[in-house]
Simulated assay, not measured.
Amino acid sequence: MAEDSTPSGRLERLVEAGKAVIPPLTLLSALLFYFGYVSARSQYEYFGVDVDTIGLGTQDYIMRSPQPLLTPLLVYAAAGAGSVAVHAAVRRRIHPEAAARTVRRMRRLGRGGQVAGLAALTSGLLLLLGYPFLRDWRPYGLMTPLLIAAGSTLFGSGAAVGRLLRSPAPATPLRRTSTAFVYLVVAVSAFWMTATLAQWSGRGLAMDRANRLDELPSVILDTKESLFLRSPGVQETKLPASEGQTFHYRYRHLRLLIHGKDRMFLVADKWSASNSTIIVPLDDSVRVQFQFQNQPP
């Protein structure tokens, strides 16, 4: 019972309660879904398509999440390993028998970290307050959380170095609260940065795809009525009339961008600012043919 009343015991009970409310696997799936959705939304927005009209499912978005998450996770892992290594190096150099010169050097290091962290944190908060004026600045979504996270980390690390140099003292409720607040700020900032990178990743994938539209499946589309397409390069041919013929127009030089639940999204095979995405329902109102690749076997 005495152990349950300690701060560590209360923290363990809080963690266990959080696991009961939100299982780790559910939380992980939710995060993968969100970042996959952000990336896909940015990707198909480039082609003028609202991703919600495609009809992708939860599994589709989760499967798309590794692409935008790979770089941020590697960076976070490297930053975490570096911080652990620095913390271990600092603790090795701080001991009761340490030379006075070393103590002074470490004290200056801690104060320098606090000053640099406070400057970065202040810059991030100023950017946050200036959102109405800076929201169209492209690096805003990355620089603001990066400055806030880096500033909070440097300030907290500098303060920790200062505490290590002083006589050990039990953690006070204020110190525990401030440490938890720093962790929360860093976590929220990391989430914001990852969402921004996922958005940039989706736009980059779209631009790369637009540069290589000829690699998408080639489609021949027959319709009953003229579509009056305005995309340059799409060829419209009127089919010869015959008995029982219900399809009168044929379109070539189309590519399959993505296949939704009950519809296809087609684009011209060459990118142009005048292009548009064609939504074709999968029913008897159209007739679709997929062409073979031109490269012989």
Rank of each mutant, 00 (worst) to 15 (best):
S167L: 05
P173F: 03
R176L: 03
T177E: 05
T179S: 05
F181N: 08
Y183S: 12
Y183D: 09
V185K: 04
V185E: 04
V186R: 03
A187W: 12
S189M: 02
S189R: 04
F191D: 03
T196K: 04
L197P: 09
A198K: 01
W200I: 08
A206L: 04
D214W: 15
L216E: 04
L216C: 05
V219C: 00
D222H: 14
T223Y: 01
T223P: 01
K224N: 04
K224D: 03
E225C: 10
F228W: 14
F228T: 13
L229S: 06
R230K: 14
S231E: 08
G233F: 09
V234T: 08
K238D: 15
L239C: 10
L239E: 10
P240R: 06
E243Y: 15
Q245N: 11
F247M: 01
H248Q: 15
Y249T: 09
R250V: 03
I258E: 08
G260C: 03
K261H: 15
S274D: 14
S274C: 09
N275F: 11
T277L: 02
P281T: 00
P281L: 00
P281C: 01
P281E: 01
D284A: 03
S285Y: 02
S285W: 06
V286G: 07
R287P: 05
V288G: 02
Q289N: 14
F290K: 04
F290G: 02
F290D: 00
Q291A: 12
F292M: 08
